[in-house]
Design a protein around this nucleic acid. Structure first.
Lengths: 201, 201
DNA sequence: ACACTATTGTTGACAATGACAACATGCTGT
DNA sequence: ACAGCATGTTGTCATTGTCAACAATAGTGT
């Protein structure tokens, strides 16, 4: 009898499903994400994903959590560049955020789609909040250096974070109004820091 | 023989499909949007939508275009409040933008999802650009009054528009960090206008 | 007034999907 | 060695989107 191409127990199917799902997501979008197609790619039966994810939505949620964890790691590394002034680190963190989004556009969109639904998993909220904890710290350091206006650093960070996120959401294929997003990011950081008014009121 | 409950030709099926689709979208999300379900609700056969929308995706694209047209109308009305200074009009336009998004969260998300796909329909791009044409005009008036820094009003508007859009995308059920988005919007407009730096550099 | 065409309905079929149930294999703990 | 659990399997069902062929009627041209 022909030996099976793989032992009966895959051994790492959950991780492989997540990896294959991310690739399929970026290639074809969430609307064409198919559990059966993923199973065929991995050489398992159509019902085996159900042993790791109770529903298709559970797999999608797991992708979102994974995404926020990655984003947090990427932004955290960029934000901790020692020996640079806070503005340089701020711009680096901003570039890291936008860079992640440009590199994983479908995953990025899915991450924020996942947080909109009722019954959001607590791990998702934890991962999201971790991802957004870096910029407030940098602004707080700027306040301590007398360079940033007074106020709750989280509230100030929200303005900048929202502007960056908005840039990503409003861009098309990495460009906004014909300009590469990567070129727009430092300018946006500058605009938000100095303000659009001609004076300080 | 029993008279049919409706003439053979519906007469307004396309508009009714869009209306029903929008309601279903807000109620259940895009992933549970079903052509057959919409057909049942409207009392027509399962294949009749195909006479108006070649594919399900065409219906979704039509929803996005409709959304941008509505958004443009809402923001345009708010932006044209005569007799008020530019900052008040700016805040009104910002409130209108965020208000629309809070009132139609699923449609709003779908609008920006639609623009991300390759082969975006030209009407979608036209409607999107119309929606984003109002804030640059207000900033230009602010520049003429000497209140806004020099520069391309579209580029400056991008920073503010991105911040607003980012707020929406990052909010959860109309709140951000426990605060109602409507309360955050004027603060964000203020932050972007005056800047986060303690001085003008 | 009528014939023809186009529009927009219909029924039926097919392939694909997600989810579920029942069964199969093998790993782990006692 | 065996029971229990984890994680595979096959098979089934209901639903979906899409397509083809046909049906009804609205609109148009003569």
């Amino acid at each position: 009898m022909k030996p099976p191409s793989r032992p009966y127990h895959h051994g790492n199917l959950r991780q492989e499903l997540l990896r294959a799902a991310e690739a399929a997501l970026e290639a074809r979008g969430v609307q064409d994400l198919s559990l059966r197609e993923l199973s065929r790619e991995l050489g398992v039966s159509h019902a085996s994903p159900q042993r790791h994810f109770a529903t298709k939505q559970d797999l999608i949620d797991a992708l979102a959590i994974m995404g926020f964890e990655r984003l947090s790691s990427v932004v955290g590394k960029a934000a901790e560049a020692r020996g640079q002034d806070f503005k340089a680190r701020l711009t680096k963190a901003a570039n890291a955020y936008v860079g992640f989004a440009l590199k994983h556009p479908a995953l990025f969109a899915l991450m924020f789609e996942a947080k909109r639904r009722p019954g959001m998993r607590p791990e998702l909220r934890t991962a999201l909040m971790a991802a957004f904890s870096h910029v407030p710290k940098i602004l707080q350091e700027g306040q301590e250096a007398g360079k940033i206006v007074a106020g709750d650093p989280h509230s100030l960070a929200l303005t900048l974070g929202a502007a960056l996120h908005g840039l990503v959401a409003m861009s098309i294929e990495g460009k906004i109004r014909g300009t590469s997003l990567k070129a727009v990011v430092p300018k946006t950081v500058q605009h938000v820091l100095t303000g659009l008014n001609t004076n300080k009121t």
